[in-house]
């Protein structure tokens, strides 16, 4: 891929360089096609799967993880792999949101999002400007953030003295507000990645950090922008989690960290960076929700659902790897 000083890529960023392999079927698309066929067959033969209520439930259960996963996509594309501090950050954001409810919904929203953006963008700055290892850094940040959450709350559940968040649990046109926010965040992320200089530079930095640096791209700034966007997404998730659960304790974030990573990977974004898209992540998040839904409707246990999710992510990661290896030949 050619890199210009303005950061313009010469090829569509989520398309692998296809040299001499055009006639072979793309394994990712082939696998996705097979999976969709299997799901359609399983869904059609599952009682109540093809109903409006179930479609709503799938979308609703995708929203929280999906919003965070969209933010994580930018970070992964920009070559920062993953963050392991997501659950803790969302928990702190939720606590701040609930504790500041007496100040009004707008103020508490602003403070909560500001917290998410700041905590996450600082990590992005350390990674972007000083090339810190994102895994190690975010493990440390996760401990620190979780510690702060426990210290501030003293382990108790934070709830709002004067709850003003009911509007966030509303369901315009029958769908939870979080679903609309997920769609809006996806559109914004996709637009940023495709239509802005910063977005294109994220692909270039993720593809080859050293080359991007040598080409004069603002590696540090691009990384911080990706992480700040990620922080805003975590902030939104934290706010919706707080409103949905009407309280926040240290366990609120649950498995959000790994669920978001799974959704990004299931969408086919390369963990090494440089490839992927927000739309794919939305697809990945939906896919995981649909599979969980089919398994639940068919009476499989939570354990089986988690197992299948793990196998799906593994299969997609292997396929993406094979695809990129083939693309390099």
């Amino acid at each position: 891929m050619m890199v210009s000083r303005s950061g313009r890529a010469e090829a569509p960023p989520d398309t692998p360089p296809a040299t001499g392999a055009r006639r072979r079927p793309d394994p990712l698309r082939l696998a996705a096609g097979v999976l969709v066929l299997i799901l359609l067959a399983a869904g059609a033969s599952t009682d109540r799967f093809l109903t409006l209520d179930n479609a709503r439930a799938i979308l609703a259960s995708t929203a929280f993880v999906g919003i965070t996963a969209i933010g994580a996509t930018l970070v992964m594309i920009a070559g920062s792999a993953v963050s392991l501090a997501v659950s803790q950050t969302a928990t702190v954001v939720a606590m701040i949101f609930l504790a500041t409810q007496p100040l009004g919904l707008g103020t508490s929203l602003l403070l909560a999002l500001l917290c998410g953006v700041t905590v996450t963008a600082v990590q992005g700055a350390v990674i972007g400007y000083w090339a810190a290892n994102p895994i190690v850094l975010t493990i440390a940040a996760g401990f620190a953030t979780g510690g702060v959450a426990t210290w501030i709350s003293d382990g108790t559940t934070v709830s709002a003295e004067v709850p003003r968040y009911d509007v966030l649990n509303s369901t315009p046109l029958g769908l939870p507000l979080a679903v609309y926010v997920l769609l809006a965040v996806t559109a914004l992320a996709q637009w940023t990645l495709r239509r802005t200089t910063a977005g294109r530079q994220m692909y270039l930095v993720g593809e080859n950090r050293a080359a991007a640096h040598a080409a004069g791209l603002p590696v540090g700034r691009v990384t911080v922008v990706a992480w700040a966007f990620f922080g805003a997404c975590i902030g939104l998730t934290g706010v919706f989690l707080a409103s949905f659960n009407t309280g926040a304790n240290s366990a609120l974030g649950g498995t959000l960290t790994l669920d978001a990573i799974a959704a990004v990977l299931a969408g086919g974004t390369a963990i090494a960076g440089g490839r992927g898209s927000a739309l794919r992540t939305l697809g990945g998040a939906l896919l995981i929700s649909i599979i969980s839904d089919v398994l639940l409707l068919r009476g499989y246990s939570t354990g089986i659902q988690i197992l299948v999710k793990g196998l799906l992510v593994l299969a997609v990661v292997l396929t993406v790897h094979l695809r990129s290896v083939r693309g390099r030949r």
Binding site: R48, S61, N245, G254, S292, D293, L296
Partner: peptide, 15 residues
């Protein structure tokens, strides 16, 4: 897990 509880509840209620 409160988050997982919400998710499973959404699916069961739809089911």
């Amino acid at each position: 897990d409160p988050t997982l509880s919400g998710k499973i509840a959404q699916q069961l209620l739809a089911r």
